[in-house]
Design a protein around this nucleic acid. Structure first.
Lengths: 190, 190
DNA sequence: ATCGCTTCTTAACCCAAGTCAATAAGAATG
DNA sequence: CATTCTTATTGACTTGGGTTAAGAAGCGAT
């Protein structure tokens, strides 16, 4: 399970010097979240932010007892809950779809690291901008395309996701019921 | 048309000291955008950001010749096109629904002002956070609620918008056709 | 293997939105 | 005030997703 590592994942997004790599390795705190575990609930204020090393998590709202999934997080993605930043109660949940290995940070350790090594700040800021741009594209996609189009894009852009995540979670993410996803797949085979 | 002013609009969001108010008044550049004018097109890189003093603008994508409106901006709202920040070609358009009075800024004047008065930076950062939180709520709303529910919320939260914006733009924003909005209204009168 | 549990598919029926077309109501122009 | 253009509504019909319920397939545990 621990064959993947932070540095490789980060270098997919941006260049990282030897020194930086050493720093990151030195400071990173790792832990494993078991399958199905919920790390943030509605009403709570997140005390940690996460970087996914291996596994998969989902962000969802609970409306009339129904999950509404708005995002999947996989290897190399960062989870910074809005409540971690603004200290207001969270409106959504975050839980693990698979057993997930994460590197995590809290405000205290963040401050400590940045004080000791201010050169890390520009790196995280850059990463933040890159991921923010990706998030915006995903949101726009949701508005512009219908479920069938979005399913086809998922096949294109994140084929691995379809293998590892149950159909009902995929359907939920697409904004439809599992039955409808079945019908879409049937339609597409023709 | 020029009876509204920046300071009053800003104080609706956050507290502004006398000194700050003077600074803002002194530096603000104002201009009027005529009804129907497009200030940002797909492929362009925005050279300015805007603060709406009076009027209304819309942000939309053009997909197969069809507009897809994702946001209305009205008095007191800030428009910071993503291309203004990241210098990548814009994927969307921004145009005026009504004749609109704006205060505007560009990177040069921004830098100049912040150099002269660094105390303004924390104010704009705070405003940015507040508006980002609002934007996220609007996006979530779009995912969680259906068109009828979103129309009812519009009546609740932005009643003035319905009076001043044509039905077909409202329908577009709700993600449906004008005919469907007509039917929703008819359904609701019962 | 078998039992139970979860996940996925299929079918029948309903309903909301899309489409197309016609009409009505307003606004702007001459 | 008549004409034209734009905007809003209505009706008939199609389409795609929701709902309910039933079965099929996959998988783990004993």
């Amino acid at each position: 399970m621990e064959n993947k590592n932070i540095i490789d994942l980060l270098t997919e997004h941006l260049h990282i010097s030897e020194k930086m790599a050493e720093l990151i390795k030195q400071y990173s705190q790792i832990r494993t979240i078991e399958k199905g575990a919920t790390i943030l609930k509605e009403g709570q204020i997140a005390k940690e932010c996460f970087f996914i090393i291996d596994g998969c998590m989902k962000k969802f709202y609970l409306v009339d007892g129904e999950e509404k999934i708005t995002k999947f997080y996989t290897e190399g993605e960062v989870i910074t809950p809005s409540s971690y930043t603004d200290k207001n109660p969270s409106k959504y949940y975050i839980s693990a779809i698979e057993e997930t290995v994460v590197s995590y940070g809290d405000p205290n350790s963040e401050n400590e690291i940045y004080k000791a090594h201010p050169e890390l700040e520009s790196l995280t800021r850059k990463l933040g901008e890159i991921l923010m741009a990706k998030t915006n594209i995903e949101f726009d996609d949701r508005i512009i395309n219908n479920p069938e189009e979005r399913y086809l894009q998922l096949i294109e852009n994140r084929p691995k996701l379809l293998q590892r995540i149950p159909q009902y979670d995929i359907a939920n993410y697409l904004g439809i019921r599992p039955e409808s996803l079945s019908r879409i797949k049937k339609r597409l085979t023709k």
